[in-house]
């Protein structure tokens, strides 16, 4: 077996994991499967691209590659702005669409359908603005460095893995050690009791949207950096994201990340064994097996 498969799987898995954390958090707190989450990935990538381009046009020095990486300082700065903008977009969609539906106590399935509509509109809006032609953060080609044991990775890939690992640890600490994290877990377990205990559910919901969208944005930037940016990039990730969120157990952040890595590795293996064109079917197979064998997921509670 090709050891490079492991590196490819880990990198894809890290992106899936970051996206799946957002899915699992919105699912456990807002209690519906958000089909528009993939669009936060795409929008995050395009917002970072646009901001980075803007910064680059202001100062050419920002475009000069940093050390071994393919991008200049314009990208990290743009990512900060794009995370904020993507979070703002999620809050806007919530204020216009999900919030009013929640207030009316709409059924879960109405929320799912609304997210489906939002997904289509947001994705096509990207296509309208940027067209469906793939774009890139950087045209620079990177040499993959040998890491020993037959593994090779580009500096961009290693950086992405490190960023993903740091983010997962940070989110886990946020959820388990901070007041807002405890509030999120409380609302996820029992919204009524959380209200009685003095927790403002609206604040928690806003936090979850911002957190999920921010992580999605970073996943989108990673995908854009390592592969390419297309309006459909997030939508194409949606099935792996759902598979990972369910495999990890709804509500579990470490579960989502671990399951993301499993899905990524399984996809890489599938690509190797049956061909790249069947990549998307791997997530579906995982989903079917989880639903059959352990619907509560690896770290989930049985209901």
């Amino acid at each position: 077996m090709n050891p490079q498969l492991i590196m490819d799987g880990l990198i894809a898995g890290a992106m899936i994991g970051l996206g799946a954390i957002g899915i699992t958090l919105t699912y456990s707190i807002l209690r519906f499967a958000n089909f528009a989450h993939g669009e936060m990935i795409s929008w995050g990538a395009y917002l970072a691209l646009a901001t980075s381009g803007l910064l680059g046009s202001l100062s050419g020095a920002l475009l000069k590659p940093i050390g071994p990486f393919s991008f200049g300082w314009s990208l990290p700065l743009a990512v900060l702005a794009a995370v904020a903008l993507t979070a703002g977009l999620a809050l806007l969609v919530d204020a216009l669409l999900f919030g009013p539906l929640r207030k009316r106590r709409s059924a879960v399935i109405i929320m799912v359908m609304a997210s489906f509509g939002a997904s289509l509109a947001l994705r096509s809006l990207l296509e309208f603005i940027f067209t469906s032609k793939p774009v890139y953060f950087s045209k620079a080609l990177q040499i993959a460095l040998p890491l020993g044991g037959g593994l090779r990775a580009t500096p961009d890939q290693l950086l992405s893995l490190a960023v993903a690992a740091i983010l997962v640890v940070a989110i886990h600490i946020l959820l388990t050690r901070t007041a807002i994290g405890r509030s999120m877990r409380a609302v996820s377990e029992n919204q009524q009791l959380a209200g009685v205990a003095g927790i403002d559910a609206r604040k928690v919901i806003r936090t979850v949207w911002m957190l999920g969208a921010g992580l999605a944005c970073i996943a989108g930037v990673m995908a854009g950096l390592l592969v390419q940016i297309r309006p459909y990039m997030g939508f194409d990730l949606l099935l792996p994201l759902f598979a990972a969120a369910i495999l990890g157990g709804i509500g579990s952040v470490p579960g989502a990340m671990l399951a993301g890595l499993i899905v990524g590795l399984a996809e890489a293996l599938g690509v190797q064994l049956i061909g790249a064109e069947w990549r998307a079917a791997v997530a579906f197979m995982i989903l079917v097996f989880v639903l059959l064998l352990r619907p509560q997921g690896l770290f989930g509670r049985a209901e």
Partner: peptide
Amino acid sequence: QARAAALRIVLIGIGLCAILL
């Protein structure tokens, strides 16, 4: 024209959300 087609889908997506609301 590709843009036009995309815009059409945006409008129908917003339309469905508006009906739900």
